[in-house]
Design a protein around this nucleic acid. Structure first.
Length: 569
RNA sequence: CGGAGCGUGGCGCAGCUUGGUAGCGCACUUGACUGGGGGUCAAGAGGUCGCCGGUUCAAAUCCGGCCGCUCCGACCA
């Protein structure tokens, strides 16, 4: 394919990583001279990095096409009205980069393209005969993230592969969805990154169900709940878990003095009872409404679940003065005598029998507080936060929690966009119907970061063959004419075989060249030195291997191809 | 947005407490020696000390404001 000379390569390696870099992949990407930061969450990609990104894109492209999707391109600049039409101008609000054109019209830089693809659909598709449809693009997205972090993991400008499907009904949709799902597994496999698909919250994209493709790594920013006994896997945002046996008591309400006891922990100790036999109250402002959430004392409220249970879009903790204004006594709050309209109860307190709860009066609690008899809630919903050690809702196994990076996310959108934007088609029975949509995203640079994170050692990157910027890194040693001609011969032969070659033609010492070769991480290193050449030998070393092997100069190309082929297994 | 920290040459850092010629390592340039895992010696180039204002005879250093970047949290496909 090509030969690149290190002396001419745009970019330089660094011995020390910039202090800003925390994770291994971020440090290595910076040290190897692949990326350079311009602003918070905004990076340049130098030639080798760009080559890897193109390779990743090509893998994605091939898998998307295999799944029956067609590549296309939509604009990054969009009129804000489009977002008002779908109702996301506000909900997506702060993340949108806004700008004005010369006529003072407000435009946005697109953070995602559900709106524009839905608009396209309604302009292009009229009939069920035109369905199903599946399209995708690789395109730069802009998101003014509240906090960019982790190098390429969370940035404000990035390439996303986003795909969209349109189907006549749920059954048809399922086919598209499963094809995409398989394509995602294929993409990550081919890029050398292990992933697990987990149930997820669909967040600002909306829709009914979604799955994230997670690369498990301690540097990840998502908490993933996994069951080692069965296949259950979910983002902690929505993970379910078993509540265990009801532990409550029977009996009449009975007040008990609990001076200064305002925490569940303190209460359990003071009364010498397990936290499982208490009820905890937590106060939130949900879409502007003060909300009283009740859950078993040993559990925590999952705010996202609570928000979803109320079909709301905003939630935060209630401020102390707001708690007081609502007439609730922090530390001693009781669901008794609270307007049930305000109350959301977790199943853990509904089925539990009598629990110890606040008396709604400073310094007192109540025994035997029983749902149904003493209080009720308008909404009963799973609002509990799954924690490691909880029991799996499917099989009872002990749940584990791991950190992970979300590399891809696939959504069942239903009619979330088509309906408000009035996108319809005429079905075979002459009825006008709304298409069932799906959308499917992959963060391309984030995937590159994951590739490095999953494939490196102390010395540097170890690129999987499939996405390596260079297949072969040639290290000439010694300045003799023999070395130069052997290098020239080998590099052009390899290049003629379709390989990308990087030759370190700099006047550096061997140690420098070897260290840079390890850092840059080409799968195969070929050392051509004056010493070996006297015996007609050159050396081959796979980046994964500790030792090099000598082969005759004449066998260089064949041996190199064999060595590289061995990586593909 | 709340909390913490940092901004001094390309990278990593010291100097700031106690104001007085801006330093060290790496990298870079030239030369010599060296030559298979970041070598040695010599001579160099390179800095509005983030920005603006104030105090002072004098500010990298003290004071005020602002900007930028990182981390934790909130938030977020």
């Amino acid at each position: 394919m090509s030969v690149t000379r290190m002396s001419a390569l745009f970019g330089r390696t660094l011995r020390e990583a910039p202090a800003d870099a925390d994770s291994a992949n971020h440090q290595l990407l910076l040290r190897s001279g692949l990326i350079v930061q311009l602003a918070a969450g905004v990076y340049s990609f130098l030639p080798p990095a760009w080559r890897t990104l193109l390779k990743i894109e090509q893998i994605i492209r091939e898998e998307m096409e295999a799944a029956g999707s067609q590549e296309m391109r939509m604009p990054a600049i969009q009129p804000r009205e489009l977002w008002e039409e779908s109702g996301r101008a506000d909900s997506y609000g702060p993340v949108l980069f806004n700008l004005k054109d010369r006529r003072d019209r407000t435009m946005v830089l697109a953070p995602t393209h559900e709106e524009s693809v839905t608009d396209l659909f309604r302009k292009v598709v009229q009939s069920y005969r035109d369905m199903p449809q599946s399209v995708f693009q690789m395109q730069t997205k802009f998101r003014d993230e509240p906090r960019p972090r982790g190098g390429l993991v969370r940035v404000r400008e990035f390439i996303m592969k986003d795909a969209y499907t349109f189907d006549v009904d749920d059954d048809a949709f399922q086919l598209n969805y499963l094809a995409m799902r398989q394509a995602y597994y294929n993409v990550f496999e081919r890029c050398g990154v292990p992933v697990v698909a987990v149930q997820a919250d669909s967040g600002a994209i909306g829709g009914k169900q979604s799955e994230e493709f997670i690369f498990l790594t301690e540097i990840g920013e998502d908490n993933i709940i996994l069951c080692p006994s069965c296949a259950y896997a979910a983002n902690q945002e929505r993970a379910e878990f078993a509540r265990g046996e009801a532990a409550g008591t029977d009996g009449a309400l009975e007040e008990v003095e609990t001076p200064g006891i305002t925490t569940i922990e303190g209460l359990a100790e003071f009364l010498d009872i397990p936290a499982e036999t208490t009820a905890k109250a937590a106060f939130f402002l949900v879409d502007g409404e003060p909300t009283f959430a009740v859950i078993r004392g040993d559990l925590e409220v999952n705010e996202l679940k609570l928000m979803n249970a109320l079909d709301a879009s905003e939630i935060r903790s209630l401020l102390p003065e707001e708690v007081e204004k609502a007439g609730w006594v922090a530390g001693y709050a009781s669901p008794i005598s609270v307007d049930p309209v305000r109350v959301v109860a977790d199943p853990s307190v509904v089925d539990a029998g009598g629990l110890v709860a606040g008396a709604n009066r400073e310094g007192f609690h109540l025994h035997n507080v029983t749902y149904g008899r003493d209080w009720t809630a308008r909404t009963i919903a799973d609002i509990g936060m799954a924690q490691p050690g909880d029991s799996c809702a499917q099989c009872g196994g002990d749940l584990e929690m791991h950190r992970g990076i979300e590399l891809g996310h696939i959504f069942k959108l239903g009619t979330r966009y088509a309906e408000p934007m009035d996108a319809t088609f005429l079905d075979s029975d002459g009825e006008r119907r709304t298409p069932i949509m799906g959308c499917y995203g992959i963060g391309v640079e984030r995937l590159m970061a994951a590739v490095v994170q999953a494939n490196h050692d102390e010395q540097g990157i170890i690129w999987p063959r499939s996405v390596a910027p260079f297949d072969v890194h040639i290290v000439p040693l010694g300045g003799s004419g023999d070395v130069a001609s052997a290098v020239s011969e080998v590099e052009s032969a390899l290049s003629g075989k379709g390989l990308n070659v990087l030759t370190d033609d700099r006047e550096e010492r061997a140690g420098v060249k070897f260290n840079d070769a390890d850092l840059l991480g080409a799968p195969l290193r070929i050392t051509i030195g004056a010493r070996g050449l006297k015996q007609g030998q050159i050396e081959l070393k796979l980046r994964w291997d500790a030792e090099a092997t000598s082969v005759p100069l004449g066998d260089a190309v064949a041996s190199a191809e064999d060595a590289l082929a061995s990586l593909d297994r």
